[in-house]
Amino acid sequence: MQEKLILQNKIAKGDFARGGETSSNLKELLRKLGIQSDKNRRVTIVTYELEMNIIIHSHGGEIQVYISSEKIRVVAADTGPGIEDLEKAFQPGYSTADDEVRDMGFGAGMGLNNIKHYSDELEIETGPGQETKIVATVYL
């Protein structure tokens, strides 16, 4: 099967009210497509973290999800401000989130680690003052 775009959602900065909506919609969609529940779970966790990262850290962005017979690709692209220090961002517990966001149980410094853990492949293009594009792939 040729790769096909199955979901495209714009995500606004600070839109906690809709946090989890993209990943919830995706979970339902993948269930309807008959994707194995463990694969669905992995893709959903990855998408949730990417979604919340856009809400918490970026100026806003978009998530696109592509599927083919062999893999699911989640593409998260935002308009900045970019990840200052990618190595630090991968350290468990490291976060630049403010106290208010942390009080809600976000910004625990687990997000990127979760994304890495549950993806088979992960590509990140970012830098200070730049847009960030993350592509996470889960093989079916």
Binding site: F16, A17, G19, G20, E21, S23, S24, K27, T44, I45, Y48, M104, G105, F106
Partner: peptide
């Protein structure tokens, strides 16, 4: 089991 009572809890519970 949690102390969080905001709406994102519902998203996480559902997911």
């Amino acid at each position: 089991i949690t102390i969080q009572g905001h709406q994102n809890v519902v998203a996480v519970a559902s997911l």
